[in-house]
Structures are given as structure tokens and as C-alpha cells.
């Protein structure tokens, strides 16, 4: 056992090395997670694409994985996702941007210290609860004004829009706060009003941060699952742009909702329908991953400009 017995100092450094390796392994878990996500999605998606051609998957207009005649066209799901994303963006982007302007340019320190955490709460409410609010309270309220179906894209878009407001507002506000005060003072010196300074100086100067927050929020809306599953329903439907009103007033199915439907149903592990789950998942992962990277790229621009 003498080989295992070390001097005092080398025992200490030995322990230091062991500890270091243990922690490095912990850090590697995050890389492993990404690798595992990619591998598992790819493995099953490749099997899926060997049975269903990618052309059929990406250009097909019918999504009926479990009903005869079986068809795996992802377009209805993609357009459904786009409808929700577009609707929620209509709410969240302007409201989030205005919120950021208020917090960064107008709010007093005290108001900001109350409003910022309160807004974060909007993002912290579980999404299943948002879905329930949309289905049980917002849809009947809309129905009183315009007749809508029980499941509709409008109510889902509203709640998804509300839950991504903090994403837009907090990142945009950070970008606006990073705009150097010199720019504002120079503008005031030229006789500009606070309105002009906010809209013509601060917003353009913080544009890259704002754009980055928009992309991130859209990515979040695309990946949002429970609220749209509950409120927008399970009707895979290719969006019919000739009937703009119907687009929002009727049920759609997003990619995420289709995954939930397939995942919760009892399709067996070897069926094509089950593999299609991973093909849709891979599509979703790819879209959100690219958007997140894009957002980071855009954001890193403004960090460099004002340092």
C-alpha cells in the first residue's frame, strides 16, 4: 500500500486534483445534455426520414400521423406555429418595447424597483396556468364580442404574448440603460424633448439589443407548449390567408402541441408516428437554436460598441 501513501503536500494536491476533476465533470454535464439532445433527436429523425422522404415532410400539407390515410406533412404545424408567433409578437413586441422605454427613460428608481420584479412574475407563472386562463376566461370574453370556436389561436396568442413581454422588456431595457448618457445630454443640448431623445436617440442606439430581445422572445413563443396546447386546440390546419379573420378565430395546432398530442397518445415505440415526434422535435430545436444563436450574435454587437 506504500504506493498509495503520499506525503502531506502531495496528498493535498492529490485531493485538489480529484475535486477539480469532479467539478469539471459537473460542468461537462451541460455539454453532454446538448450532445444528448442532438443525438437522440437525430437518431430517431434519421429513421423517420428513411421511411418518409424529407421532401414529403417539409412540403406536405396534411398532418395525420395516427389517422388513415397517414400523412406527415409538417406545413400545417409550421403555419400554426407561425400564426401564434405572429399574434403574440403583435402584442409582446410593441408592449415590451414601450415598457422598456418607460423603465429606462421615465420611471423613478422606486417605480422601477417595484415594476421590474413584478414583470418577471409574468414570465414565472406556469404556462399550463396561462393555457387555462385563455381557455376558461379569455375565450368566453372574446366570444361575447365575436363568435369564436372553443379552441382558437387568438386567445392563445394573447396569453403567449403576455408571457413573453418580460423577455422583450428586460433585455431591451438593459440595452437602453447601456446607452451612454452623453448621447442623451448632447441631444438635450440641441434642444430635443424627452420624447425625441427616447424615440430618436435611445431606441436607435439600443437597436441591436432590442432586435436581439425580439428574436429571443419569438424563439420563446415558437417553443411555447402548454398554453397553445390547451387554448389553441389540436386541429392541424394549413393557414388559409384568403380568410384572414378565420386564421385567428379558429383552432390551429402548433409543432409543440402536435408533439404533446403524439407524446401523450399511446403510439408504440417502433411506429413511424412515434419517430415523427422526433422529426418535429428536431425541426423545433433547430429553429429555436438558430434563433437563440442569432439573438446572441446581434446582442454581442452592442456590447462591443459601448464599452
Amino acid at each position: 500500500m506504500s504506493g498509495l501513501e503520499l506525503g502531506h503536500d502531495s496528498a493535498r494536491s492529490m485531493r485538489g486534483r480529484v475535486v477539480r476533476v469532479v467539478f469539471a465533470v459537473c460542468a461537462a454535464v451541460s455539454i453532454l445534455t446538448t450532445a444528448a439532445i442532438l443525438l437522440t433527436l437525430l437518431a430517431d429523425a434519421v429513421e423517420f426520414f428513411s421511411a418518409v422522404s424529407p421532401i414529403e415532410f417539409f412540403t406536405g400539407t396534411r398532418w395525420t400521423p395516427t389517422n388513415e390515410p397517414v400523412s406527415f406533412g409538417v406545413l400545417p404545424l409550421v403555419t400554426g406555429t407561425l400564426v401564434i408567433t405572429f399574434g403574440s409578437a403583435l402584442i409582446a413586441l410593441p408592449i415590451g418595447l414601450l415598457t422598456a422605454i418607460y423603465l429606462s427613460e421615465y420611471a423613478s428608481g422606486r417605480a422601477r424597483s417595484i415594476l421590474k420584479p413584478a414583470l418577471e412574475v409574468l414570465a414565472g407563472v406556469p404556462t399550463v396556468i396561462y393555457g387555462y386562463l385563455a381557455l376558461v376566461y379569455i375565450t368566453p370574453a372574446i366570444d361575447a364580442l365575436v363568435p369564436v370556436s372553443t379552441f382558437n389561436a387568438l386567445s392563445a396568442s394573447i396569453v403567449v404574448g403576455i408571457m413573453i413581454i418580460p423577455m422583450v422588456s428586460s433585455i431591451s431595457e438593459d440595452a437602453m440603460s447601456a446607452v451612454p448618457d452623453d448621447l442623451r445630454q448632447a441631444s438635450y443640448g440641441l434642444g430635443a424633448t424627452k420624447f425625441t431623445v427616447s424615440t430618436s436617440v435611445v431606441v436607435p442606439a439600443a437597436l441591436s439589443g432590442i432586435v436581439s430581445s425580439f428574436i429571443l422572445a419569438l424563439s420563446r413563443a415558437i417553443g411555447e407548449t402548454m398554453a397553445v396546447t390547451i387554448a389553441a386546440g389540436q386541429t392541424p390546419r394549413l393557414v388559409d390567408l384568403t380568410d384572414p379573420a378565420g386564421v385567428f378565430l379558429e383552432s390551429v395546432q402548433t409543432m409543440t402541441a402536435a408533439m404533446v398530442q403524439l407524446g401523450a397518445s399511446d403510439v408504440t415505440g417502433q411506429s413511424i408516428a412515434y419517430k415523427s415526434l422526433f422529426a418535429v422535435g428536431l425541426t423545433l430545436f433547430a429553429i429555436t437554436f438558430v434563433m437563440n444563436l442569432l439573438s446572441e450574435l446581434v446582442a454581442s454587437r452592442y456590447r462591443e460598441v459601448y464599452r
Binding site: S30, T40, L41, G223, T256, M259, L284, T288, E296
Partner: peptide
């Protein structure tokens, strides 16, 4: 790489984590 990756993982849709759990 790890640090960029952690930021990106935070943005992966939760339903994709579900698929990961299912597969792994």
C-alpha cells in the same frame, strides 16, 4: 464552449427536454 452552451440550453423549449428524457 460550456458557457455559450449553458446560455443556449436555457432557451431550448421544454418540450424538447421531454423528448430527451423520453429517449435517455
Amino acid at each position: 464552449l460550456v458557457e455559450i452552451n449553458i446560455g443556449n440550453l436555457a432557451g431550448v423549449p421544454s418540450v424538447v427536454y421531454g423528448l430527451l428524457g423520453l429517449a435517455i
